[in-house]
Amino acid sequence: MAETTSRVLQLLGLLQSRRVWTGEELAQRLDVTTRSVRRDVDRLRDLGYPVHASKGHGGGYQLGAGAALPPLLLDPDEAVAIAVCLRLAAGGTVAGVGESALRALSKLDQVMPSRLRSQVAAVHDATVTLTSPSSDEAVEPDVLMTLARACRDREHVHCGYVDIRGNATERRLEPYQLVTTGRRWYLLSYDRDKQDWRSLRLDRMADVRALGSTFVARDAPDAATYVQKSISSSPYRYSARVRYHASEEALTQHFSPASATIEAEGPEACIVTAGADDPERMVLYFATVGYDFEILEPPEVVSAVKAVADRLRRAGA
């Protein structure tokens, strides 16, 4: 049985390496009869691989495209090339690609031999891309993979962390989900010492270690919503609610998910929530959007509207 399985895998590798093989060529490569080749082809079909057969001049066996993606066999060079590309994609800014690339990279890294993993790291370390985040916001691929696997396996994590005020702490975490804004990566996790949910920036983490012990999953908040609220208002001194007389579609062209949350209040009105440390700068920011608006709260930002308006009126005079 083991010999048959090994031969079927060899056959799959051959079919993936060239467009068309005759039955005689495959039999010679596998050192079996053409009848055995036909049986092994049927086994591949049973596993979901669409192997087509054609007769006549130029005919033979050909691996085609099916309704679902079957497992692929990769040689060492192909595995290294794909892993390098996935690392670059995981840190890129193409919408929706980063998280998918990270999941694929985590699967590949789990089964990759250490000698190939070191080759991937060497190529990545020697590569610089102009589209990467600035050096102080860059996230190491190994940190991404460690946290991705910990989220998947519900594994405890320990790390150092520096918050927005520069305070360094040690964190004992239950990691739940990674969220990317395209520019930065965040982790939704349960802090075991603070006994509360936290949104943590990966570029502020250090010495990230998965401990091997596992935890029972809690009822977690929606990761995207929680992280968006955390990064758009929570870190700031003032959190303002503003009613805009514009559609949600129009406002999403001006506010990024990392800067504000938008709640539709009808077809032509929305409530925008955003944070800042300076009320007057916040008012100027709201005004540049280009739609009529009114500040609902807090009082400090409402008062800043008059101060900014008076200053602009004097400048115009």
Rank of each mutant, 00 (worst) to 15 (best):
E294W: 03
T225L: 13
A274T: 15
A121W: 04
T34F: 01
V283C: 09
S100N: 06
L202S: 06
M282P: 03
T131S: 13
E99S: 13
P141W: 01
L86C: 02
P267Q: 02
S199T: 11
V20N: 06
A150R: 06
A246T: 11
L69H: 11
E137S: 12
L14I: 05
L251H: 05
D42G: 09
V162N: 03
T180A: 13
D153Y: 00
V84W: 07
A101K: 05
I271T: 15
V80W: 01
W185C: 12
V128H: 13
F286E: 08
L30R: 03
D219R: 15
H158L: 06
Y190K: 02
A260K: 05
R19E: 11
W197T: 05
L200N: 12
R314W: 01
N167L: 14
G266N: 07
N167T: 15
Q62S: 13
E170I: 02
L116W: 05
A246M: 10
R204V: 00
S256I: 05
T225G: 10
G91E: 04
R281S: 12
G98P: 08
L144A: 07
S36R: 14
F293I: 06
V120Q: 07
S6P: 01
K229I: 12
E265K: 15
R172D: 13
V227Y: 10
A89Y: 06
S303Y: 08
V272D: 10
R171N: 04
H57N: 08
E248Q: 13
T180V: 09
P257E: 09
A240C: 14
V80G: 00
P257K: 07
V216K: 15
A264Y: 07
D136V: 02
P175N: 07
G13S: 14
A224H: 15
T129D: 02
R192M: 11
R149S: 12
V179I: 14
V308N: 03
F286T: 07
P267G: 01
L63E: 08
T34V: 14
L147P: 04
K107T: 06
L200I: 11
A150N: 04
V37D: 04
P267N: 00
Y161R: 02
E174N: 13
P50S: 08
R39H: 13
